[in-house]
């Protein structure tokens, strides 16, 4: 069993513990659930601001990744998969980014999550940055897709913390729609 992460002496605790994950699609293969789970690797878990920086400072910036890759930041105990109990009734806000914006947007997004800027109780599950050929995609996942007050608040906070142009298109998708 994995040891639980705890803040060290003098460190600033986070409201929740989180894990970073990394996944990379093997070119040409269909993404079945099994291969998705096999392709996703947990990088590490952290409980404090300082522990977060120790991981993050050594990670490649999303804008420097090549190929079909994703970084995931999820609360400890939640797998970055639709099938996880915390996610199965949930959904995600999706923002498509032109190339060159992913690194800055991803950093602003995860700092807002870790700092509890969304003010939606326990609703946030995690976030993903997906590096693709022509554009990059960031998404933030929450527990209850049917809770419109929560999803609206997440959308408004996203606009503020990402400092997005007013015409940026944001799309909400429930995970059950994504499975279909």
């Amino acid at each position: 069993r994995r040891k639980m992460a705890v803040p060290g002496a003098g460190e600033h605790p986070l409201q929740f513990n989180y894990s970073f994950w990394y996944s990379r699609r093997t070119p040409g293969r269909p993404a079945s659930t099994q291969s998705y789970e096999q392709n996703i690797k947990q990088i590490g878990t952290f409980a404090s601001v300082e522990q977060f920086w120790r991981f993050y400072s050594h990670m490649i910036r999303p804008g420097d990744l090549t190929g079909h890759s994703d970084f995931h930041l999820f609360k400890d105990g939640i797998k970055p998969m639709w099938e996880d109990d915390a996610n199965k009734m949930g959904g995600k806000w999706i923002i498509r980014l032109r190339k060159g914006l992913a690194s800055r947007c991803w950093e602003n997004l995860i700092l807002a999550i870790l700092g509890e800027q969304f003010m939606v109780g326990e609703e946030i599950c995690g976030a993903v940055v997906s590096v693709r050929f022509q554009e990059d995609i960031i998404s933030i996942w929450n527990k209850t897709a049917s809770d419109q007050a929560t999803t609206a608040r997440i959308r408004d906070t996203l606009r503020r913390v990402l400092n997005l142009p007013p015409n940026t298109i944001m799309e909400y998708k429930t995970h059950t729609d994504s499975i279909k």
Binding site: G8, G10, E11, H12, P13, L14, Q15, V49, E50, W53, R54, S57, N108, L111, A112, L114, G115, E116, Q117, V161
Partner: peptide, 21 residues
Amino acid sequence: GTRIIYDRKFLLDCRNSPLAR
């Protein structure tokens, strides 16, 4: 209970702490 809230600037400042290395 209380929530532990940090703004972006505070989190970025923590990056320079020796504990963050």
